[in-house]
Every structure is written in C-alpha cells, then in structure tokens.
Nucleic acid binder design. Structure first.
Lengths: 205, 205
DNA sequence: ACCTGAACACCGTTCAAGT
DNA sequence: ACCTGAACACCGTTCAAGT
C-alpha cells in the first residue's frame, strides 16, 4: 500500500476530476491519504510526479498484438490516444510536451517504432516518422480537448471559457474549425491517419 | 509608453532569458518598470498575458508574399517556426498548446490557409491540413527545444537536466533520437516537410 | 485614467523531528 | 523505513487608496 503506483493513481484522479492545473502536491496528498511530505517518500519532486502521470496515462492504452497488419495497429494506437483526450482532457498537453521517461510511455513509442518497421520503413527514418505521427495525433487531441468536444463533466473553469479558437475581440469570426461537431472531428482524424498511412507508403516505395 | 505592447515585449524578454516558468507577474512587472498591479491595467490576468506572449512570439515570423509558389511559402513559414524554438525554447509549448487569439497568431494560421488554398486543397479540407502541418511543426520544434540542440545561453535549470528522452533508470538505452546532431534534426525536418508537401499533393490529386 | 501597497489564499520544497 | 508539522520563499489576484 501507498506505493508509487498509488500516488500516481491519485494524481490521475485529481487531474481527471479537477484538472492538471489543480493537481497540487497537497491535492494529491489528500487524495492518496498522506500528508504533503509523505508524498516525497514516493516521488522525487513535482517534476517526477508529472513524469509518472504521463506514464500512468499512457498505460491505459491497450497496445495491439504485433501480428496484426501495421495499418490496423497504427489506427488502434492513434485512435486510443485520441480517446484519452476524452477521459483526461487537461493532461493531453503534458503528453505532447514532456519527454517520455516512464516505462509505460516508452512502451507506446516502441510499439509505434515496430509498426513503422513492419511497414517497411528504413531504420534511420523510423524515429522521425514516429515523431511526425505521435506529434500530430497528440496535437490533434489537444486541440479537440481544448475546444471541449467531449463532455467535461466536473471541470470548473473550462466550461466558463468555452471555445476561444480565434480573434476574441480583435478579429472577425476567423477560424472555420470553431464550431464543428464531434463527428466532424473524428472524421477529420480518420482522414488524417489515412493520409499519414499513404505518406508512410510513399516513404517506403 | 507602457502600453500593452511594452508589457508583452517585457514578457518575451523574461521568457527568453529566464524561461516561461520564471515569467511571473512580478518578474514581468520588474522588467517593464511597473509594480505588479500596474500590469493589470494592460493585461486582464496571466492567461491574457500568455495569449499576448503567443502573439508577440509569432509576430516575429516574416510571412512570405502571397505571389510566391506555395511550396516555398510553406517551407518559409514552417522553417521560421522551427527557428523560433532556438530563440525562445521554453515558449514553444505555449504555441502548441494554447488557442490562438492574438491577431499576430491568427495571421500565421491565415497565411497557412492561403498556402493550402493555392495548393488546390478543397476549402473543407484546409483546416484539418493546416492543423496537421502546424501541429507537426510545433511538436517537432518542442521536441528539438526540449532536447537542447540549440544553445540555451542563460537557462538555469535545463542544462543541469540535459537530455532525458527515454528510460532514465528503468529502461535500457531506448530512444534512437537521444543523441543526434543539430544537422540531423534540420535534415529530418526538411524530409518531413517534403513528405507533407507530397501528402498535400496527394490530397489534391 | 493610471498606478500603488498591503493583504489573502495559495504554491513547491526544506528542515528538524517523531515513531 | 516511513511519515509528520512548522516554516520559507514564493505565487496570482483582490481591495482600498492614492494622484
């Protein structure tokens, strides 16, 4: 009990219910049933907690078996990343921004590397294509989460601050994405992944 | 004097020299020569300051003339975004994560929309392709900035915490990107943009 | 109109103790 | 070994004043 895993679980609960911004050391300590300083027994500092949170979040991805076709695996992983944005909208920026040090985070990157290898991509091209794909996917997820297309039941401030994509009082109605539906976002995403699969085939051919 | 522009300039100076994390309201106030509360005359709150900082940063991009070939314009804009990561490494995550409300930020998005339009992309496909390209570019810039491939002369903590891409003590040496050179990053980026130009041509054809 | 000073309710983290 | 309480140096922001 009260191992690192429990602390990370508590951190994710706080992040999911009150948002990453409200995930203070004190809030996590309360959630796990420790005093603030008890936390420092299981976590080096807040930076380390954040790294752990990234790993804990990506651990929820069900990595596809390696014997499936690579296109299927690519769609499985990326669509699950997009799904995470529905469950944990405020943690998505962390996935995009922070280096992956936790083992569960590295596992996702490795799985994508194997996907690209099985697609026939040359070894020296794999890292840049992996970065292209995961960066795009997470960026897309962040954009979707920011624009609140999934229900955010317990959030406090986000709903008060609803869309804000472009020009609030300076510019005319600008960004055509501002008012699309959740179906449109999902369809766009599928189209993007299809394009990226073609891109990969182009690199291999 | 002491208009909003001066506050944003001061914010960028602080962000560039001490990092976004150290860019407190008090630090910006000191830099611009005001008391903390004097800031609130020009900025609604810190969120507004951050929005302004995103605009101020993107304002440094020299948007190419619309009569140039679209491929050239695409390379000009994206390579300048990557260049920004050298000047302001710690602000890049903001560019990737925050909605673009400042006029200068919207201008960059609009320029990319025109690039895609001139490439022959159908109007209803333009937003998703713009998001694909800018998300990828900024994600790449964040990764590059995080891994410190540009000199970060005045940074305090980053150099102490040098690379950290993968498995620090849990996993074996994992990520093949961990030790590439700046030339390799630039070459990778060029290859990516070339691939994305092909992707756009594929969408149009 | 524009700016200030004092104060409030928070932060992450250190340190010296406790068992 | 594991946890605690008090304290420190910060935060963003409010409020009541000043000119």
């Amino acid at each position: 009990m009260n191992r690192r895993a429990d602390v990370l679980d508590a951190a994710l609960v706080v992040a999911a219910t009150r948002g990453v911004a409200a995930m203070s050391m004190r809030a996590v300590a309360d959630q796990v049933g420790l005093t603030v300083m008890g936390l420092y027994r299981h976590v080096r500092d807040k930076d380390d907690l954040l790294d752990g949170l990234v790993g804990r979040t990506l651990a929820e991805i069900d990595l596809p078996a390696d014997d499936q076709p690579w296109e299927l695996r690519l769609r499985a992983i990326t669509s699950q990343l997009l799904t995470l944005a529905g469950r944990y909208p405020t943690v998505m920026p962390l996935l995009l921004t922070r280096a992956y040090s936790a083992p569960d985070a590295v596992a996702v990157v490795d799985a994508l590397h194997r996907v690209l290898g099985d697609a026939g991509v040359a070894a020296d091209q794999i890292p840049r294509l992996e970065r292209l794909i995961s960066t795009f996917t997470l960026g897309y997820a962040v954009a979707a989460a920011n624009n609140g297309f999934w229900a955010d039941p317990t959030a406090t401030s986000p709903p008060t601050d609803p869309v804000r994509v472009a020009g609030p009082d300076d510019a005319a109605p600008h960004d055509p994405n501002a008012a699309t539906s959740i179906e449109a976002w999902a369809a766009d995403f599928d189209a993007d992944i299809t394009d990226l699969i073609q891109l990969i085939r182009g690199v291999v051919r």
